[in-house]
Write a protein that binds this DNA or RNA. Sequence first.
DNA 1: TCCTCTTGTTTGGGTACCCAAACGGGTTGA
DNA 2: TCAACCCGTTTGGGTACCCAAACAAGAGGA
Lengths: 185, 185
Amino acid sequence: MDWREFDQNPVSHSAAHHLTAIQQLLEDQGYARVSDVARKLGITRGSVSVSLKGLRQRGLVVEDQHKHLGLSDEGQRIARGIHTKRVLFQAFLEKSLGLPADLAEMDACKIEHLVSDLTAEALAIYIDRREDASDSSSDREQQVNALEDSIREGRVEAFPGKEIETISERLQSSSEEQSKDKDDE
Amino acid sequence: MDWREFDQNPVSHSAAHHLTAIQQLLEDQGYARVSDVARKLGITRGSVSVSLKGLRQRGLVVEDQHKHLGLSDEGQRIARGIHTKRVLFQAFLEKSLGLPADLAEMDACKIEHLVSDLTAEALAIYIDRREDASDSSSDREQQVNALEDSIREGRVEAFPGKEIETISERLQSSSEEQSKDKDDE
DNA sequence: TCCTCTTGTTTGGGTACCCAAACGGGTTGA
DNA sequence: TCAACCCGTTTGGGTACCCAAACAAGAGGA
């Protein structure tokens, strides 16, 4: 598998944030201009101007006669998809893994545009089923406690600690067995 | 929160793969040279030569008198961490979310270097607890079935479909409630 | 010895981002 | 009317990657 698949995504990290920024500005204030996007993303107007030129050529962003920005159908679809992925991952990291909200937000932001649609779909189904099935609050509490124990013991300081690496090795060897079984078929 | 945190990671996607490639080559064949790394990553020797110059300056990669590459302690720690994260995420995507192995591998590869150590730690704990707790095979089967239903219904074609977006909206509004509660305190 | 192969490096070109700075067009208050 | 200001765009510079191509150095085989 080519490890460089990462940069042949539908949209880059930068593009993802430009699109979602426009979408959010439209929701919040009814319009979006280059300056608004620049302010929201914390970069210069010049950078946004250039980036949007590309997105306009790709047909994701449109502009009316008053320099007001909008999203094409495809642009909307992409922006919605990214937003959905962010929400799903943030919720999973926070509620299932027990991570603090700010860290969950940051990690979700980093990966939102990278994961495939099918992965997001599967995560949604997974979260949905867990929520129905059990008293998730006590579940989450247990996870938070386990995590805090781990932090207290200082394992995270030198990642990966011994315990986590044992788990990782076990997972790896079990998946190797599986692929061996597959070869035997 | 600054959305550009993504590029101020300990190592870039490229660097991550250079380091893990060296580590794996050392395991597999006992040595690693520029050409070996280039072959493994599918890029030219020239690119690897330049990239490794930077990693050597950062003290992550070392070189003996015979042009044989190695990892410093810090380099080893980073490579091990990335590898561990890849294994954890791949296992989660495949076994808990029921994704096909190749997709799980691809998505894990994309995010392995981005997630924080604490997130990986939490995921390890999470996986570990689930494995002990329940008959995970039937769990996984259920998840796979649910996912296949979803695919059959063609929801993934136009991501995000209605159902998944409903879940996402619910998650979002519940987390907004939470932060409102926090403000009231 | 000489030819050939492999190896590692350097160089010039390309892409995708970012910034700072300058410029031209509007709007607005004095 | 005109200076002050905000807008969007363009331009030159910087970083981090990639490639292709040219080079020098070493290792062998004929």
